[in-house]
Design a protein around this nucleic acid. Structure first.
Length: 232
DNA sequence: CCCGTAACGATTGACGTTGT
DNA sequence: ACAACGTCAATCGTTACGGG
């Protein structure tokens, strides 16, 4: 996923009211849209280096969008809207081994009336539902973690993926780790016990879990490397 | 019939209000 | 006093609808 225009570098001042961040660019303070509705635990330190994009659409109140934050000498992509795009490109470019040379990739496919999953992939006459989760948390420099706050939606999705298994689909959760240098991934069970419980149940039922790390660069973000999931 | 625009849902934590 | 609930924030993608 290439950014269409060069990103602008600045320093983070604060994030507030869910969608706002104040950023210092060469001693001018601007307000940028924060395209990540999560808690962004650990990412919001004052004076962190950030990269933002500019969009001159007259309908936008905020012309800037926060894209990347530098934390502990590591780059983190925070625009969750890009996650499915990055994964779509990864699937199309055969960067995800399991789904290499798939016959079709369909985004946003309804499983039932209430739930749609991010992708339905068909390969060798087998259908796979894939639910993508964007990951930006790392409390330890070696290990990315999900979730960064209690996620009842996440738990609901796991339960529905279990249903999909029972209806004869294969189902996958793909943790897209938008953190530049990281080796492992795990479920943060201390943050959301219920999610961890549902993860174990889903795994037992046959839901497959994958974690991939991105290359984060102010020019582009792409899928780079499969990570080891180290929950026991 | 087509294009442009308006409306709407999804995203999730913070905060204000209401109810017990 | 606190818990539960509803609303709000900006953007984007999709859908619905109007005028020409």
């Amino acid at each position: 996923m290439k950014f269409s225009k060069r990103l602008i570098k600045g320093k983070l001042i604060k994030r507030y009211k869910r969608f706002f961040t104040d950023i210092n660019i060469k001693n001018k303070i601007i307000t940028a849209h924060c395209p990540n509705t999560g808690s962004m635990m650990g990412l919001l330190g004052k004076n962190n280096d950030v990269w933002i994009s500019k969009n001159n659409d007259p309908k936008r109140k905020l012309k800037y969008t926060l894209e990347i934050i530098k934390v502990k000498n590591n780059l983190v992509g925070v625009n969750t809207l890009l996650a499915n795009k990055i994964v779509y490109e990864g699937l199309s470019n055969n960067l995800i081994n399991k789904f290499k040379n798939s016959d079709s990739i369909k985004p946003e496919v309804y499983f039932n009336k209430d739930t749609r999953f991010d992708f339905l992939v068909n390969k060798n006459n087998q259908n796979y539902f894939i639910e993508v989760k964007n990951v930006t948390l790392f409390r330890n420099i070696n290990t990315a973690e999900f979730p960064d706050a209690v996620t009842s939606r996440g738990s609901k999705h796991l339960k529905t993926l279990i249903d999909a298994i029972k209806k004869g689909y294969k189902s996958y959760v793909l943790f897209l780790v938008q953190i530049q240098n990281i080796d492992n991934f795990k479920i943060a069970k201390d943050i959301d016990k219920d999610y961890y419980k549902n993860y174990l149940l889903a795994k037992k039922t046959g839901v497959q879990f994958l974690a991939y790390r991105c290359k984060i660069d102010p020019a582009e973000i792409t899928i780079k490397k499969k990570l080891k999931i180290i929950n026991e």
